[in-house]
């Protein structure tokens, strides 16, 4: 099925044959998962989001317009899921979740370099959490998913102008939080040996 386009795969699904499910999952699950992970800062929630987005894709395959971009449609479902998740009061406590060890330690790097990379990743993740959900959604889709403002507007349910403003504001905030001068802060962990 690898040679089939997204639209062709979806047409098969719409016909009641779900065998392309795994192929579509393999194409998009990484992007969906990472978007949700950055948006929600919870691996568990990101996994649930990924699961439910793809199940929804199968369940509501007929809602997919044949000429639309599948990625846009999937990100729309994902963004909705994430917004719902954040709306639920009980999920807000997860904001306190911290990551002690998240990143791999490549064998070819010194422990210091590894540690630096981990800290950078942590700093970015924390900075992203300082944004409003709307800004975070916009910057994640723009910076990490390479979506156009028109697509983001469709996903976020707003105008392109609003997207432009959100991304700009997000960048302004991130610039302050991530500038070289702002680096430092608590080290999350200490290498022992």
């Amino acid at each position: 099925m690898k040679h089939l386009s997204d639209q062709e795969l979806m047409r098969i699904v719409q016909g009641g044959d779900f065998s392309p499910a795994s192929e579509i999952y393999d194409r998009y699950s990484g992007r969906i998962y990472n978007f949700a992970l950055r948006f929600l800062k919870s691996a568990e929630a990101a996994e649930d989001a990924t699961q439910e987005v793809f199940v929804k894709m199968i369940k509501h395959a007929n809602q997919f317009q044949g000429d639309a971009k599948l990625s846009t449609w999937l990100f729309s479902i994902t963004a909705n899921w994430c917004r719902d998740y954040l709306r639920k009061a009980d999920n807000k406590v997860k904001e306190s979740e911290d990551v002690l060890v998240t990143l791999p330690a490549p064998a070819d790097q010194s422990p210091d370099r590894t540690l630096e990379q981990r800290e950078n990743a942590l700093r970015i993740q924390r900075a992203l959490q300082e944004l409003t959900a709307e800004q975070r959604e916009a910057i994640l889709l723009s910076r990490y998913q390479g979506l156009s403002y028109a697509e983001i507007a469709q996903i976020a349910g707003c105008s392109e102008g609003a997207v432009k403003t959100r991304v700009f504001r997000a960048m302004e905030t991130l610039k302050k939080l991530l500038s070289v001068d702002a680096r430092g802060g608590d080290r999350c962990l200490n290498a022992m040996s």
Binding site: E97, D98, V99, V101, P104
Partner: peptide, 29 residues
């Protein structure tokens, strides 16, 4: 709290994958 992550694999790529997929989370109040 001290943690010792032990990774074993058939080759170095497997060990790297093991590391990629193993995370420790803490939540505190």
């Amino acid at each position: 709290l001290s943690a010792e992550i032990a990774l074993r694999g058939a080759d170095s790529a497997a060990v790297k994958e093991a590391r990629d997929q193993t995370q420790i989370y803490t939540t505190i109040n």
